[in-house]
């Protein structure tokens, strides 16, 4: 009886608790947060603008190197940014657009289409990995997927240069090889970064949409004709 009454009013018993005067009844009840953030250590207010920009550019460049040489590190995950993905996406879309803008028909891939595929696709992949129980945050995943488009953008540049020279059967074979290689590279790099955050038995389920995503982009790059 007493127990049930106590349960219904959980804090009723507190009034009966007597605390002697000399014990302080105050304290910090927040969770201990560890050492303070790095941002506190140096102030960015009074540094030259050039330093700020250079630091950000260096961070972006650093991530590009990480994509080119994918080893299982969390550097790409720790400080995510969307500058690199934006840059790559716009570059790819402009390169794919270049030829199609002159034509009357709408057969070529349009700027908006590339843009939508890249961002919508990465969002779908990210949601999928979250739903499958991944432990990666939303923008970290977007960052990784965006940076890993880089091999395909490079392949697009190569294709444009090769197509400037001439077009024929051998040239198509060269483009095929380049695009397939960069497709494999993209998939491998993004898997290397994303795989650790997934439950081990479900990696195949997470990799499939990533594969599909880069496959569609690679196919667009391959079928580009000026």
């Amino acid at each position: 009886m007493a127990a049930s009454e106590e349960a219904s009013r959980p804090f009723a018993g507190l009034s009966d608790v007597s605390i002697s005067e000399d014990i302080p009844v105050e304290g910090d009840i927040s969770v201990p947060v560890g050492p303070s953030r790095r941002d506190d250590e140096f102030s960015t207010l009074d540094e030259p603008v050039k330093d700020t920009i250079m630091r950000d550019l260096r961070a972006v460049g650093n991530k590009f190197i990480h994509v080119l040489y994918p080893k299982r590190s969390s550097a790409l995950l720790r400080d995510w940014d969307l500058w690199g993905p934006l840059l790559l996406c716009v570059t790819l879309a402009l390169l794919l657009q270049g030829g199609a803008a002159d034509h009357e028909d709408q057969g070529g891939p349009q700027f908006a289409e590339v843009f939508v595929i890249v961002w919508f696709g990465s969002i779908i992949i990210t949601l999928n990995s979250k739903l499958l129980g991944g432990t990666i945050s939303f923008f970290q995943s977007l960052c990784v997927l965006g940076y890993c488009i880089m091999p395909l953008t490079v392949a697009m540049v190569v294709c444009r240069i090769v197509l400037l020279v001439s077009s024929g059967g051998i040239i198509f074979a060269v483009r095929l090889v380049v695009v397939m290689a960069s497709f494999g590279w993209s998939t491998f790099a993004s898997t290397a970064f994303l795989a650790d955050s997934q439950p081990p038995n479900r990696k195949a389920l997470v990799v499939y949409p990533v594969f599909l995503f880069y496959f569609v982009i690679a196919w667009m790059v391959l079928t580009y004709s000026p």
Binding site: V31, V33, G34, R37, S74, L77, R78, D79, W80, S137, F138, F139, Q140
Partner: peptide, 10 residues
Amino acid sequence: PWGSFDDNLI
């Protein structure tokens, strides 16, 4: 969602 890696540690 946009918590950085540090936040996950917290």
